[in-house]
């Protein structure tokens, strides 16, 4: 029998708008690769990072790949904890309705769809980050 590896809490902290810099896409690619290692993964979107999750992104006019569709695949990769800072949304005049609804299908519950995106306040987010073993910044 294979030995159970150590599971650590990994947090990917996303603080940049998409497309203007490469950070958002790089973070997404690292997350998709890291998902194979069966670790406890959380994604955090704060500051301009909240723009990564907006609905209706249309990149035809700028000739770049619209990678916002890939966030909906995160559930397939067992990523079920995506936190968005409430205050960052408010400062930008955005609400939850401006964001994609991200879900995962619970295999153990007849593939029922469940929310994976949580809008959390500053204090709660601070607690979540403080509980992590590793925080990777993008």
């Amino acid at each position: 029998m294979e030995e159970e590896g150590i599971v650590k809490k990994f947090c990917y902290m996303n603080r940049k708008a998409p497309y203007g810099t490469i950070y958002a896409l790089e973070s997404l690619e690292v997350v998709l690769i890291a998902a194979a290692f069966d670790q406890d993964i959380s994604l955090v979107f704060a500051d301009d990072g909240v723009y990564q999750l907006t609905k209706n992104q249309d990149t035809d006019g700028i000739g770049m790949k619209n990678f916002s569709k890939t966030y909906s695949a995160l559930g397939d990769y067992d990523i079920k904890k995506i936190y968005v800072e409430k205050e960052s949304l408010e400062e930008r005049g955005l609400t939850t309705d401006d964001l994609q609804a991200l879900k995962y299908e619970d295999e153990d519950d007849d593939w029922a769809e469940k929310d994976s995106l949580f809008v959390v306040g500053r204090d709660e987010l601070s607690k979540i980050i403080n509980e992590q073993d590793v925080v990777l910044s993008f």
Partner: peptide, 18 residues
Amino acid sequence: EEYQIAPAVRVLTKAIGK
């Protein structure tokens, strides 16, 4: 077409099963 990525083997296997 839907997600703009090619899925990892593990994800493919699970999704094909479904």
